[in-house]
């Protein structure tokens, strides 16, 4: 959809996780990093998937449904990887919506999702 490189989202997310750089420092001090971080990781993951489909099949890339794009992956790459990508995306998606009784995600949770997204991008 956009030209933004998924790696840039990931880099920003990493800054927040480590509290590094101006962005990370501010985010940690102000305490708004967890939600923003989840959002950036999700964007990176989605960007990676979109890029994959742009290379592989433009009709799928144009499809609006995120779920379809994920489901279609099954035919193309290792099923285990698809499962992990789907799980990470579902978790991130949940974190970025508001829910009843929501509390901010923890560092460990985000770090794990970050690693998953990074691995997925390399695969895709």
């Amino acid at each position: 959809m956009t030209g933004t490189d998924p790696q840039r989202y990931l880099a920003a997310a990493d800054d927040m996780l480590r509290g590094a750089g101006v962005l990370g420092a501010v985010a940690v001090t102000d305490g708004w990093w967890p939600k923003a971080c989840a959002c950036l990781i999700r964007l990176a993951l989605e960007g990676g998937i979109d890029a994959f489909w742009l290379r592989a099949s433009s009709p799928v890339a144009r499809c609006g449904s995120r779920r379809t794009k994920l489901l279609m992956l099954r035919k193309r790459i290792d099923l285990d990887v698809v499962h992990r990508v789907s799980f990470a995306w579902a978790a991130l998606s949940r974190l970025t919506h508001h829910h009843c009784y929501d509390a901010s995600p923890t560092l460990g949770e985000l770090r794990h999702l970050y690693d998953e997204a990074k691995a997925a991008l390399e695969h895709l």
């Binding site: 933004t4 989202y9 939600k35 923003a36 959002c39 970025t96």
Partner: peptide, 12 residues
């Protein structure tokens, strides 16, 4: 371009 989706996300 990195900031925008985060802002949209928080607004949503």
């Amino acid at each position: 371009d990195v900031r925008a989706p985060v802002v949209a996300e928080l607004c949503r």
